[in-house]
Design a protein around this nucleic acid. Sequence first.
DNA 1: CAACTAAACGGACCGCGGTCCACTTATGTT
DNA 2: AACATAAGTGGACCGCGGTCCGTTTAGTTG
Lengths: 199, 199
Amino acid sequence: MTSPLLPQIGVDPPERGDAARNRRLLLDAAALLVAERGVDAVTMDAVACKAGVGKGTVFRRFGSRSGLMHALLDHTERELQQGFMFGPPPLGPGADPIDRLIAFGHARIAIVEVQGEVQRAAENSLEFRFAAPARAVSVHHVVSLLRAAGVQGDHELLACSLLAPLEATLVLHELRDLGMSVERLGNAWEDLIRRVTRC
Amino acid sequence: MTSPLLPQIGVDPPERGDAARNRRLLLDAAALLVAERGVDAVTMDAVACKAGVGKGTVFRRFGSRSGLMHALLDHTERELQQGFMFGPPPLGPGADPIDRLIAFGHARIAIVEVQGEVQRAAENSLEFRFAAPARAVSVHHVVSLLRAAGVQGDHELLACSLLAPLEATLVLHELRDLGMSVERLGNAWEDLIRRVTRC
DNA sequence: CAACTAAACGGACCGCGGTCCACTTATGTT
DNA sequence: AACATAAGTGGACCGCGGTCCGTTTAGTTG
């Protein structure tokens, strides 16, 4: 993975022309496969074949299936990051930190509703579940908001614990298998945040 | 009519002798492999070979690798259940529900410390991560304690959200990758419970 | 004991994720 | 234009999880 999520920090050498072209081909092929045959149909062979390249190339570009899925989510993830870092309230700066936390959860749940299957596939790998830059950004964001809300304690761990119930796999389970509504999940999140930040 | 009297509803027919014998052989083989070569060495072929049976038998008995791992954890899981259902306080009945919740989390974290790798392998399958009977029991237990503690709101979802940060994969990440101590995790859990149940 | 049946067995087989490495090509340099 | 070389490529190959189905066996019935 040579394209970190938001923080464009560090200077990685530019990609060669053909490599960039193939990355696009592969991403398009993968997105197309998701759209028309579902996420399970996105095998590395199928993507390679559809993009007209060899299988090795897929792995060179994305490292693993989870990495490919992660790349597929990159755009949405960036949008969310933009939203809570620079966008309008209540998600962005300006609103009460507690309201921002609530909005953050709502946004995440909404994303799961749309891209949950792909997110779940991406979460299969430890690397992209916990060590991904995107996650670090989220954790840091929640930590900041907790601090801003005047919450005392172990912010880092509290943030991890609050993010845990937003994991795509769990949310998807609650939505699909348990038949819960997005509204219900949103309300529960808001309730959780209010409880945690109260006092 | 040769049908047995009182057909024992809800009780599935007993296992055949050879099947029971092979289950034991397989579980022993798997446990041995974990102990001496780590959880990654527990491939279905290796277990089958070590137990002296065919690969198909492993799948017939346990359904999947996750199922096998789950079976490996069964004993510990039952002990925990016994502990919080019938054991002494603060885990068992008699103590303040909030203290019982705290003790429950501590117990789970302690288990992860010992069997985390196997738990993580078991969590790989959706089936055993969310649909397992053991999980249902845990959820129900937490719901009961929340009610007993006088907490208002969506107990079901709150329980799910509280259990999420106790998932082995996450706890293992916090312990191993982030280098956090068991004490710190325990404190964070206690803090979370106190916040959620306060007011 | 013989006959019968449902359960258990085993291993060939499949598809997928992932690795490897000999080969090709884009790009900067002289 | 020729060259050097780092980067990119592709597909054969591997191991594993999981399936399938013809064969074997435990337990039951008369």
